[in-house]
Design a protein around this nucleic acid. Structure first.
Lengths: 230, 230
DNA sequence: TATTGCTCGATACAGCGTATTGGATATGGC
DNA sequence: GCCATATCCAATACGCTGTATCGAGCAATA
């Protein structure tokens, strides 16, 4: 149809400047950008491909499955997680804090942590750095200790991010959260079915997310320390 | 078309015995059955509806969203999770073990734990029972202690179930797991990039899932105990 | 009885991950 | 040097998802 015009009338085709050179790194960057902006649900192969100006199936040259892309995303974030400090306690604490900070910056990480085996190079490097910095404490203690800290971090981070989302979903304003869940809980507690819980909610401590995380972590590190010195 | 036959030739329609009386409980039971058998991905509103011999949109009379169905599933499982024992330590330990056992029976629970605010009646009842059984220890310690144990359990259960799946996915046979991930890890360690990690994998302890869980939990409980008696 | 309102379920829609396939391009044979 | 063949890549297609929409059938009211 367009060929009915002679060449002089026909506009030049828009020059696609080479079929978009790709790489896993570019895939992952695009995916992380989407996830940071709109959550994990916004990461679809179609959207990632569109962000790279490419058809969806092009991505399958770099990954075999969407899950692999998610694995790559997690490993990319682990590049920022490096333990620091002297002595096993500082090392484990900094590992925990760094993971938490990464999840606060990339909330989708909370959805992925612990959900798949993590064997990427950056994740392995983090593990290696932790173990190397543990200073020759005997392996029978070090291995369960690292595992326990990791488990605690995964669970604590999940809860923290989940709460953050619930608060945010209830309106940007401060503590609008309570205007949605509050009434329900109030009514529920008024039934008297959960007296102990009601007491705690009313009279218990209201800790910040920072304190919450740190206190639990201290419990754990104290327990590990006791085992080590014995 | 079928109407072209006179009544006498036409077979009776299969008698649907009353338009299937539903209830949230029946929805949840069907969903849990699907999830137990084939994982969370097998839980779609269409499949649940089909299992109940009903159109998909019928379900929206009982739930507003699929996420609500998942919340109901979690709360249903929490009905089985009740702490027992004397003294705060036994209570927290039994809470942890019961949660773990529930997740081993319903692996999909690991995917859901910590991912949404849990405010259902059974979950609240569990929390209430825990707090009631903590025997009047001061709230400033009890609240973070319960939170920490919960965080640890969520993370530890997630890791355990994830590993179980990876092993199972690598073939039903024992330790076929290593035949898939093994070679990759072997090659990776052979590069010498992760010497500390390689050492641990080679010389470190190989703990059972039970031991792993218990040791980490003991670390945590020991740390809490120290804080309590001080 | 006629009409209105409402409820409920079939259909429809937009989006998903990915299998398939058809066409353009590069390569080897005569 | 030209044609047949193979290869690679991306557009189309499929089956599935959660849920909005809408029309038919029924109950209740005027």
């Amino acid at each position: 149809m367009v060929g009915a015009m002679v060449v002089w009338e026909r506009p030049e085709p828009p020059d696609r400047p080479v079929p978009a050179p790709l790489s896993r790194e570019r895939l992952v960057r695009a995916a992380i950008q989407l996830a940071d902006a709109d959550g994990l649900d916004a990461v679809s192969l179609r959207k990632v491909a569109a962000a790279l100006d490419v058809g969806p199936m092009r991505l399958y040259g770099y990954i075999e499955t969407k899950e692999e892309l998610l694995d790559l995303m997690v490993d990319a974030v682990y590049a920022e997680i490096r333990p620091a400090g002297d002595g096993w306690r500082q090392v484990l604490r900094s590992l925990a804090e760094a993971t938490r900070q990464a999840a606060r910056q990339h909330e989708w990480l909370a959805d992925l942590l612990g959900g798949r085996p993590q064997l990427g190079p950056n994740t392995l490097a983090t593990g290696d750095a932790v173990l190397a910095a543990m200073g020759g404490v005997d392996l029978d203690t070090v291995v369960p200790a690292v595992a326990a800290v990791n488990a605690y971090v995964v669970g604590a981070v999940r809860r923290e991010i989940t709460e953050r989302r619930a608060e945010r979903a209830s309106g940007i304003d401060i503590k609008q959260f309570q205007r949605v869940y509050g009434p329900y809980l109030e009514r529920t507690f008024a039934t008297g079915r959960f007296p102990a819980l009601a007491t705690v909610v009313r009279d218990g401590p209201h800790l910040s997310a920072d304190e919450n995380f740190r206190i639990g972590l201290d419990f754990l590190l104290d327990g590990i320390e006791a085992r080590m010195s014995s």
